[in-house]
Amino acid sequence: MTEIVLFHSVLGLRPGVLQTAEQWRAAGHVVHVPDLYGGAVFDGYDEAFEFLEKCGGQDELLRRTDAAVDGVRPDVVYAGYSNGVISVVHLVTSRPGARGALAFHGSVPVRVVGAELWPSAVPVQVHEAELDPFREDDANREFAETAAASGAEYHYFGYPGVAAHLFADPSLTGEFDAEAAGLMHGRALEFIAACEDRGR
């Protein structure tokens, strides 16, 4: 059993994130799914980013992130969908003890959260559609270089031919890719199991 904290994307706590949590619980894990938006959920990216800015932007997002893990043990796996990866990187670099990190739909440099280093003991997987419209190759490269420089175990998985961003969310009918989502979830479960073994 691994304890996991899963953060939603900029669109809020959509059904796809909750389904991921249920899959992991069915596999025997404990999963926390914070709602950093207080119930707000969006179908479009423009309105979601506008909402986030009105809430206070990244500073407020990170404040809510810290509050969400208050009382949660430190030796967990952090996972995030898209914008939720910012919360993952923040916690891994500021809260010692993480067992692993899962970055779904892209990654961000550690400097984005005011950090300089990635902990060498924290393995990380990054998953991203090959043709993701939000793909930022420079950001991915910078994060990969930082993780590699620390000596951490790092794996990047691209999904060829997939042109959507949140391709693993079945509630987004225009983006969902069942084959890629299944592959991503299978890899994530293997990673979580390896983190469980590492913690024994």
Rank of each mutant, 00 (worst) to 15 (best):
Y45F: 14
V88L: 10
L91E: 03
G71E: 05
V77H: 03
R14K: 13
V31M: 12
L36I: 03
V77N: 05
K54D: 10
Q58I: 15
D59I: 04
A48G: 06
G71A: 09
V5W: 14
D75E: 13
P34M: 08
Y78G: 03
V92F: 03
R63H: 13
Y37K: 10
S87Q: 05
Y37R: 02
Q19E: 14
A27R: 14
L36T: 01
R25T: 06
H90S: 09
Y45N: 06
L62V: 00
T65Q: 11
R73F: 06
V31I: 12
G57K: 00
R64S: 08
G80S: 03
Q23W: 10
E47L: 13
R64D: 10
R25A: 04
F51P: 03
Y45T: 12
A27T: 06
F7A: 07
G57S: 03
V41R: 15
D43N: 15
E22Y: 11
R14G: 05
R64C: 06
P34V: 06
G12Y: 02
A27D: 15
V92Q: 00
G38W: 07
G39Q: 08
A68E: 04
V76F: 06
E47Y: 13
G71R: 07
F51D: 06
V10L: 11
L91S: 10
L62N: 00
F49H: 12
N83V: 07
R25W: 01
G80A: 13
D43F: 13
V88N: 07
A48P: 08
S87F: 01
A40F: 04
A68N: 02
N83A: 12
F7W: 13
L13K: 14
N83Y: 15
G71Y: 09
V69I: 13
V77F: 03
R63Y: 12
W24M: 06
D35S: 08
R25E: 06
A26I: 07
G28T: 08
G28H: 05
T65E: 11
T93Y: 06
C55G: 05
V10W: 04
A27W: 11
D46Q: 12
G39L: 05
L18P: 06
V76W: 07
A68Y: 01
Q19K: 13
G16Q: 12
V10C: 13
C55W: 04
L11D: 04
A67S: 14
E50Y: 10
A68R: 00
S82F: 03
G38K: 01
G56I: 01
V85Y: 00
H29W: 15
D43Q: 15
D43E: 15
N83W: 09
V88E: 00
H8V: 04
A67F: 05
H8N: 02
G39E: 10
E22T: 07
V10I: 15
V76P: 00
Q23M: 11
L13M: 12
V77D: 06
V85P: 00
G84I: 01
T65R: 11
Y81N: 15
V89P: 00
V17W: 09
V31H: 09
R14P: 07
F7V: 09
